[in-house]
């Protein structure tokens, strides 16, 4: 094995630094998409009419049962057929966002179901408005289980972004593949990509624990 530090510092790290920005942007954008999409899916799934809740349930199950990579390819090849040409990064963000909104919907649902039924009944008995019911009673109680789970999905999304390299988005994995192909040296680039993901995940896990404790302390006294 030969590890070349000059190659690492002169070639690999500058390119990786640019690619890290793409990875982070893809993560954040997909996460925001997943948060909003998850809320919509959750509302559809818990809708009164089975004509709405049933298809939503099956859609969520279908998204969860099929690989994200296939969904990315599907969107990537399908959208141009409908005359929509998006850059690969946007398509990828869309695919990761949809995939994770199905997962987030379950998180939201579990959080709201964790609130005891008596709380809803008490709100009705006290004649609280819908707004006050949600703002002061339901949401504060459903946040503690939701926040750490959503944090875990943020890390999961971060680790899913390398899949975008399959559709040639210039994120970390794609750049390390390109460096490997150009110089025929995979060792440094792929190892640094691995260390990057490891370090970022560990930091994120630490931050999630902090936020989790904060939410627990500030909401549930």
């Amino acid at each position: 094995m030969d590890w070349r530090w000059d190659f690492t510092f002169d070639v690999v790290l500058p390119k990786m630094w640019e690619a890290a920005g793409v990875t982070v942007w893809a993560t954040v954008a997909s996460f925001v998409l997943a948060l909003i999409g998850g809320l919509i899916l959750m509302l559809l799934k818990t809708h009164r009419s089975p004509w709405i809740s049933r298809p939503a349930t099956e859609f969520i199950e279908f998204i969860r049962a099929t690989p994200l990579l296939v969904q990315i390819f599907f969107l990537f090849f399908l959208l141009p057929d409908f005359g929509i040409t998006l850059p690969p990064l946007t398509t990828g963000i869309l695919a990761i966002g949809i995939y994770n909104s199905a997962l987030c919907a379950e998180v939201y649902r579990a959080g709201f179901q964790a609130v005891p039924k008596g709380q809803w009944e008490a709100c009705i008995a006290l004649n609280l408005s819908t707004y006050r019911t949600f703002r002061d009673v339901i949401i504060p109680q459903s946040l503690p289980p939701i926040v750490p789970a959503l944090g875990n999905y943020l890390v999961a999304i971060f680790k899913e972004t390398p899949l975008l390299s399959f559709v040639a988005v210039a994120e970390i994995m794609q750049i390390s593949k390109l460096i490997g192909a150009e110089y025929y040296r995979f060792t440094e680039a792929v190892t640094i990509a691995g260390i990057f993901f490891l370090v970022m995940s560990l930091i994120a896990a630490f931050l999630i624990r902090l936020v989790e404790n904060y939410v627990k302390r500030s909401i549930l006294h």
Binding site: K159, T161, S165, V190, G194
Partner: peptide, 18 residues
């Protein structure tokens, strides 16, 4: 758990020979 699966696969296949 901390690294991405794709990175692990790449590492095993392309870096392990080194």
């Amino acid at each position: 758990r901390g690294t991405s699966l794709l990175v692990i696969l790449f590492w095993l296949f392309f870096v392990m020979p080194e």
